[in-house]
Amino acid sequence: MDGIHDLGGMHGFGPVVREQNEPPFHAPWEATMVAIQHAVGGRGQNLLNIDEFRHGIERMGNAEYLSTTYYEHWLDGVTRVLLEKGVLSAAELAQRTDFFVERPDAPAGAALSGPPPAVRRPVQRFMPGTEREPAGPPRFRVGDAVVTHNMHPIGHTRLPRYARGKRGIIHRCHGTHVFPDTNAHGQGEQPQPLYSVQFEAGELFGPAAEPHQLVYLDLWEPYLDRE
């Protein structure tokens, strides 16, 4: 979808502001949010996959996206998808939120009537890999000239706006990987060949491009045609 998350090449965001001696987390709830994301995602109980999670964030609304922090995006994305999937109900979440708004110092266990049940699967350190067995030979080889589709799907995609309808060169073949455009929408993994594609900055940005610059994107075969 053409949302504000697709930021590449936009103007107007000012200088890159760095924080000196930045702490790992700016508030305890941020670490809790990371743990929650790990527990519900592919590392843990796999209630939402990474593409559903990203697409959840993409739908939070453009103004809201820009006016909230990174881990607030996570909170929105996780909550949105868990509600949609019926893992949580809106009523129980609203009720439980009110409980903790009224008791800001209470630990999470305070709202439980007994000890929490055991978790079915232990949480893994890393995300499960996305590479799959190829169904056939890849369509392109290193050095092939390709052009990306000019497409504006309403759903999730990993082809950024700035690189649509652009000519590039296959730089490397990464094997066959889960296709986010279907995996984000409950349409299965439908693995596709994935390539590193090299673009001249001038092809992407015209006269605005800086000299001697290349951009590399990892793009799935359905985004590409032979040039």
Binding site: L88, L93, P116
Partner: peptide, 25 residues
């Protein structure tokens, strides 16, 4: 504070449902 309470609510519900391991945070 609201965001913290909302994350705490999510944490609490996921503990209750056996989704979040209590020691993960």
């Amino acid at each position: 504070q609201y965001v913290a309470s909302r994350v705490r609510a999510l944490e609490s519900l996921l503990l209750e449902k056996g989704i979040l391991p209590p020691d993960l945070v």
